[in-house]
Measured scan of single mutants.
Amino acid sequence: SISSRVKSKRIQLGLNQAELAQKVGTTQQSIEQLENGKTKRPRFLPELASALGVSVDWLLN
């Protein structure tokens, strides 16, 4: 799922939720909701993929 991929990649990069949120241009709460499965397809998906160094396709599939 996107939530597990985001969380595992974030941890692999040594980032906390607030640091990832800053790179993406969103809030820590938005990252938390995404990782908890409350958000399925965030509006900041391209920025998120870029910050994590992955493709949008990788996040979604």
Results as ranks from 00 to 15, higher is better:
Lys7Arg: 12
Leu15Cys: 05
Leu15Gln: 03
Arg41Ser: 12
Lys7Ile: 10
Glu19Gln: 14
Ala49Asp: 00
Asp57Gly: 11
Lys38Leu: 15
Leu13Gly: 03
Pro42Gly: 04
Arg10Thr: 09
Val54Met: 06
Gly37Asn: 07
Ile2Gln: 03
Ser50Phe: 14
Ser1Pro: 10
Leu20Glu: 01
Gln17Leu: 11
Gly14Tyr: 04
Ser55Arg: 07
Gly14Cys: 07
Thr27Ile: 05
Gly37His: 06
Asn36Trp: 07
Val56His: 05
Ala51Val: 13
Arg5Thr: 05
Gln17Asn: 03
Gly14Thr: 03
Ser3Arg: 07
Asp57Cys: 09
Asn36Tyr: 07
Leu52Pro: 00
Ser50Gly: 10
Lys23Trp: 08
Ser4His: 14
Ser3Tyr: 06
Glu47Val: 08
Gln12Cys: 09
Glu35Phe: 01
Ala21Pro: 02
Gly37Pro: 02
Ser8Ala: 14
Asn16Leu: 07
Lys23Arg: 14
Leu13Arg: 05
Arg43Asn: 15
Ser30Lys: 14
Gln28Ser: 10
Glu19Trp: 04
Gly37Leu: 04
Leu60Asn: 08
Leu45Pro: 02
Asn36Glu: 10
Gln28Glu: 12
Leu34Met: 06
Leu52His: 00
Leu60Ala: 08
Gly53Asp: 09
Lys40Tyr: 12
Thr39Arg: 09
Glu32Tyr: 09
Ser1Glu: 10
Glu47Thr: 09
Ala18Trp: 14
Val56Cys: 07
Ala49Gln: 01
Lys40Asn: 12
Arg5Leu: 06
Gln12Leu: 10
Pro46Asp: 12
Lys40Glu: 14
Ser8Pro: 03
Pro46Glu: 12
Gly53His: 09
Asn61Trp: 11
Ile2Leu: 15
Glu35Tyr: 00
Glu35Ser: 01
Gly53Ser: 07
Trp58His: 03
Leu48Ser: 00
Trp58Gly: 02
Glu47Asn: 09
Gln17Phe: 07
Asn61Val: 09
Arg5Asp: 03
Ala51Cys: 07
Thr26Phe: 04
Pro46Lys: 15
Ser55Asn: 07
Pro46Arg: 15
Glu35Lys: 02
Ala21Ser: 04
Lys9Thr: 08
Leu20Phe: 04
Val54Arg: 01
Thr27His: 07
Asn36Gly: 10
Arg5Gly: 03
Arg10Glu: 00
Leu48Gln: 00
Thr27Ala: 07
Ile11Asn: 08
Ile2Val: 09
Arg10Asp: 01
Gln28Asp: 05
Leu13Tyr: 06
Arg10Ala: 01
Gly14Met: 07
Arg43His: 15
Arg10Met: 04
Glu47Gly: 09
Thr39Gln: 11
Ile31Gln: 00
Trp58Thr: 03
Val54Ser: 03
Trp58Ser: 04
Ala51His: 05
Val56Asn: 04
Ser55Cys: 06
Gln17His: 09
Arg5Ser: 05
Ser1Lys: 09
Val56Arg: 05
Ser50Cys: 09
Ser8Ile: 12
Pro42Phe: 14
Gln17Tyr: 08
Leu13His: 05
Lys9Trp: 04
Thr39Gly: 10
Pro42Ser: 06
Gln33Lys: 13
Glu32Ile: 13
Ser3Met: 08
Arg5Val: 06
Arg41Met: 14
Leu60Lys: 08
Ile11Glu: 11
Leu59Cys: 02
Ala51Gln: 05
Val56Asp: 04
Ser3Thr: 06
Val6Asp: 02
Ser4Leu: 12
Gly37Tyr: 05
Phe44Ala: 03
Ser8Thr: 12
Glu32Lys: 12
Leu45Ile: 10
Ser30Cys: 14
Thr26Ser: 06
Arg41Trp: 15
Asn36His: 08
Leu15Lys: 02
Val56Ser: 06
Arg43Gly: 14
Val24Pro: 00
Val56Pro: 08
Leu34Ala: 03
Ile31Ser: 01
Lys9Glu: 03
Lys40Asp: 12
Arg41Cys: 13
Leu52Ala: 00
Leu52Cys: 01
Asn16Asp: 11
Asn36Gln: 12
Ile31Val: 06
Pro42Tyr: 10
Arg43Glu: 14
Arg43Pro: 15
Gln17Trp: 12
Gly53Ile: 04
Gln12Asn: 07
Gln33Ile: 08
Leu48Cys: 02
Ile31Lys: 14
Val56Lys: 07
Ser55Phe: 04
Ser1Tyr: 09
Glu19Asn: 06
Asn61Asp: 12
Gly25Ile: 02
Lys23Leu: 15
Thr39Ser: 10
Leu48Tyr: 02
Asp57Lys: 11
Thr39Asp: 13
Gly53Glu: 09
Asp57Ile: 10
Arg10Ile: 05
Lys40Pro: 13
Gln17Arg: 15
Ile2Lys: 03
Leu20Thr: 02
Asn61Glu: 11
Ala18Pro: 05
Val54Ile: 06
Trp58Met: 03
Ser1Trp: 10
Leu59Ile: 13
Lys9Asp: 01
Ser1Ala: 11
Arg41Pro: 07
Gly25Lys: 06
Lys9Gln: 08
Leu13Ala: 07
Ile11Val: 11
Lys9Ala: 10
Gln29Phe: 12
Glu47Ile: 08
Gln33Pro: 00
Gln28Thr: 14
Ile2Thr: 06
Val56Ile: 15
Ala49Arg: 00
Lys7Trp: 07
Leu59Val: 04
Ser4Arg: 10
Gln12Met: 10
Gly53Leu: 07
Trp58Leu: 03
Gly25Arg: 06
Ala18Cys: 10
Ser4Phe: 12
Gln22Ile: 12
Lys7Met: 09
Val56Met: 12
